[in-house]
Design a protein around this nucleic acid. Structure first.
Lengths: 151, 151
DNA sequence: CCATATGTGAGAACTATTATCGCCTTGTGT
DNA sequence: ACACAAGGCGATAATAGTTCTCACATATGG
């Protein structure tokens, strides 16, 4: 429940979100969601499969659920320095991930509104109808720096 | 062999880039690069494999070359609305892709310097040592809108 | 508590990606 | 231009990742 580190005590309860779309709230979906929510670092699907197997959650279910959550905008797809595709839970509000390319630790931050300004500029310049954006910032976290890992 | 003296002017000549790293410039590498450069839309690797096969370029070579070009920062990895991972050629300068989530048409734009400001802010707030960022803007291009595709 | 629709797990099937290995091309020195 | 050494190339095999199928279990509404 209490994962509050920073300011917002954001333990996002997905039950109402699923209910609003008529999607049943199952133990497996709750566990997969909490797996990503409780972890501070992004995980690949195979990793999630392995970690969730002891809880009796099947491989196919992890794939299905991660895809579902990503479609609902609850998980964010990122990649580490090796190019591995990982997923990380997204918090409420308009937040973006700052990812350690080495250990995949993820810290969320709020984008300023420069982006909506940019978005408007692009819409008028290109005629595109913009539905979203993806901003990911990559770096090396303090702990990995302390381990001697450099840019 | 049809690889005659094709001295046509290329937008971005990667030969010096490869030469600087001691990487041989082969016909296949040129063709793969031009495939992405000439196309306005992002393509998946399997698509590139299929399109380049008639030119006698093998599957393994496409994988190798796309990986190489991506590592050199010449190709950018993006994804469409269906979550398909695609690649698109990157132009010189600090540019970001504006991608049509439907047809994958890609238009580059220059990011403003708000991002470097944001980057500095994040470095001091989080202690991360930041090495880069990824900004992708997604929308529906005018042509797809004209086709009746909506957000 | 029952009925019904839907999600789930195990494994098969399929697709994508990487490794292997002789042959061939590129780049360099003469 | 020519030859040689280094390394890339294509075809195939092997592996890894993802999706599909179906009998069964579980969540939701009455």
């Amino acid at each position: 429940m209490d994962s509050g580190k920073d300011t917002a005590p954001i333990d996002l309860d997905i039950r109402p979100i699923l209910a609003a779309k008529g999607i049943p709230f199952t133990r497996q979906r709750r566990d997969v969601w909490r797996y990503f929510l409780d972890s501070e670092r992004a995980a690949t699907i195979p990793e999630a499969v392995e970690d969730l197997a002891p809880r009796g959650i099947g491989q196919a279910t992890v794939y299905r659920t991660v895809t579902l959550l990503a479609e609902l905008g609850l998980l964010h797809r990122v990649q580490d320095r090796a190019g591995e595709v990982c997923y990380t839970a997204i918090r409420v509000g308009h937040r973006h991930p700052l990812i350690c390319g080495e250990c995949r630790r993820v810290v969320g931050f709020s984008g300023n509104n420069d982006l909506s300004e940019l978005q408007r500029r692009l819409e008028s310049e290109t005629g595109f109808s913009i539905y979203g954006h993806h901003l990911e910032v990559y770096g090396i976290c303090p702990e990995c720096q302390a381990r001697g890992i450099d840019l």
